[in-house]
Design a protein around this nucleic acid. Structure first.
Lengths: 352, 352
DNA sequence: CTGAAAGCGCTAACAT
DNA sequence: ATGTTAGCGCTTTCAG
């Protein structure tokens, strides 16, 4: 079964083409195309159709997508770009959603890594210009104004998932955490926590988007935001121990904490374990964001989490709308949810 | 800007082609191709070359990769397939390596999800048959014998990263954890642990590959494997608490544990925290495998870890060798490393 | 209902 | 040193 030895280059075995199928059946290539693509408005005699279908199967015919792309002037692939610093969990989840959406249209996914050279020479732009991809989805990727302007100017189809893009012209998959955050705060309040602190890693973006939601939720529950209970770490990487000490001294147990990052929450759990602070009895912790490890930490971490799969799916659908010229919805907004786990549930059942 | 003929396309603004460049300079399309591709053995007058280069830049010419693919009968993309259940962290790390390797050859990455239909109709096979991809990299993907046989029979270029493929014909990126495991065991021994247990999730593959390494390392350190200290969970998902209880009753603290999975190790850390067992003083834990959260658990988790980036990079290089017909190395073996963290370091410094 | 034919943009023999 | 030309496999007018 193996190919002849001595061939310097592993040649692709010659594929059967639609012409071969046509010859086999004794019809023209056009007819084969009509049948196989179910071209609307073209009538084919049933027996002809049947014969073509059978011959295609018998000859093991697979349409050459490159040729189709060539003719159609589109690559049938979309580029997905992410920064490297993005949580791989988020990215993979979104990717699953994108994947399912593009598969429906017989599109594939080409991965782009955001090695930004400059605004006009990023990898995804080169991919687009060379017809490798028909459109771009930015998932959690930072995006310069210059690049946005360039893409809009040049009519490059793209959508942005979960980024803080201000430009009104850009199609964005937005998410709304207002309800989920309210649920989280109510959950804490119902368990008797009167102090609900907010801890932030201080990165501008997260702060700007998440902190106001916290404020809304606190006030929506008829509580008040105490500045003492809002801590913003300017330099999270180092020396957090001291900052936690300072925070705990101010806050005093029992206290609840909403953290704007998973990592910060995990660190806090570590800190609590080290100091013998009981979670959640003395310190309830809820993180904003999702992580595969929310279930695995001890105690498992309650989260306010984004609809990742749906974000991917919707994002891809929007991109197709743009590429098809149907502008149905500029902005899609999806809801976050609150997933209570042991780090905030007082009367929790013993579970692993 | 462009649009010489005033043709207005809805989808994509008409791209400038090599023909346009040729006309602009007053040479033939062939010359443009020769210059832009630096075709070896073709002499071009320096001033001609210069003129072509300048015109290409001036006209903002970008070669159409689809057309090139069509002509060359290759897609310039390789498929990367992974199972969904793979740790996304591993996958992303390997992907980074693959990415860098394929970029060097002007190849792109097409993502395939392993929705296996049957041995001959998996998505990556359809992608290959329709010329969407020129070769396949399986990263942590399970792979049936039937599928392997099919791909070998049909001369489909593929390499396998980190899988337990037995077939000698398959090009595999293997890894070797012997040294790393030995280091881990020595590390435990040096800290005075006399009992070094082994916990496995019992999945056949991990067990078959990792447990023998444990045995080698234990014996390499002049110790002996005690069957009491080797526990294999047949049903890990549920009821682990009781199994941990049973294990601890047999093992008795102080004891060290090497776990063949990160998740199992995290669970064990949770269990220890719940039971008040001190880690690492009473129970030292080392996991085999990498995780973004090894640093974030409390205590941080020591790991014996794989060279993920290199595995991706090497895998891609091997695939190109196969596609080019140069069989340089059937098997590449890369070394694991041992990363000691707090879960196994007795005199650890306080660190977050 | 179906066929003939014209390309999509590129590369590589083969000419000159 | 450069030009001519023949496709790669497909879709899609336009003709019958």
């Amino acid at each position: 079964m193996l190919a002849k030895k001595g061939v310097r280059r592993v040649k692709r075995s010659k594929n059967v083409s639609s012409r071969d199928v046509a010859r086999e059946v004794g019809v023209s290539q056009a007819t084969v195309s009509y049948v196989l693509n179910n071209v609307p408005g073209i009538k084919i005699k049933p027996e002809t159709r049947q014969a073509v279908l059978e011959a295609a199967k018998r000859l093991n015919y697979h349409p050459n997508l490159i040729a189709k792309s060539m003719r159609l002037q589109k690559s049938m692939s979309i580029g997905v770009v992410s920064d490297k610093n993005v949580s791989s969990y988020w990215f993979m989840k979104v990717l699953e959603g994108i994947k399912d959406a593009v598969s429906n249209k017989n599109y594939s996914i080409t991965l782009c890594f955001n090695k930004t050279l400059d605004d006009r020479n990023a990898e995804h732009l080169n991919y687009y210009r060379s017809n490798r991809i028909d459109g771009i989805i930015f998932a959690f990727s930072s995006l310069s104004d210059g690049q946005i302007a360039y893409m809009l100017d040049n009519n490059i189809p793209f959508v942005v998932i979960h980024s803080n893009v201000k430009n009104e012209m850009v199609r964005v998959v937005k998410t709304d955490m207002t309800n989920a955050m309210l649920q989280a705060v109510m959950h804490l309040k119902e368990q008797g926590f009167e102090k609900i602190a907010y801890l932030s890693t201080g990165s501008g973006d997260k702060w700007d988007r998440r902190y106001p939601e916290y404020v809304k939720a606190i006030e929506g529950c008829g509580m008040k935001v105490h500045d003492d209970l809002v801590v913003r770490f300017d330099a999270f990487e180092e020396g957090t121990e001291g900052i936690f000490d300072g925070f705990m001294a101010k806050a005093q147990v029992p206290c609840a904490v909403i953290s704007d990052s998973n990592n910060l929450a995990f660190s806090l759990l570590k800190y609590a374990a080290r100091k013998g602070i009981k979670v959640p009895e003395q310190l309830a912790v809820i993180a904003i964001g999702s992580s595969r490890f929310a279930d695995l930490s001890y105690p498992s971490l309650s989260t306010v989490q984004a609809p990742l799969y749906e974000m991917g799916y919707k994002g891809a659908e929007m991109l197709f709308d743009i590429m098809d010229g149907n502008i149905i919805n500029d902005v899609v907004t999806l809801e976050w949810s609150f997933a209570p786990r042991d780090s905030s549930k007082l009367n929790r059942n013993a579970q692993l």
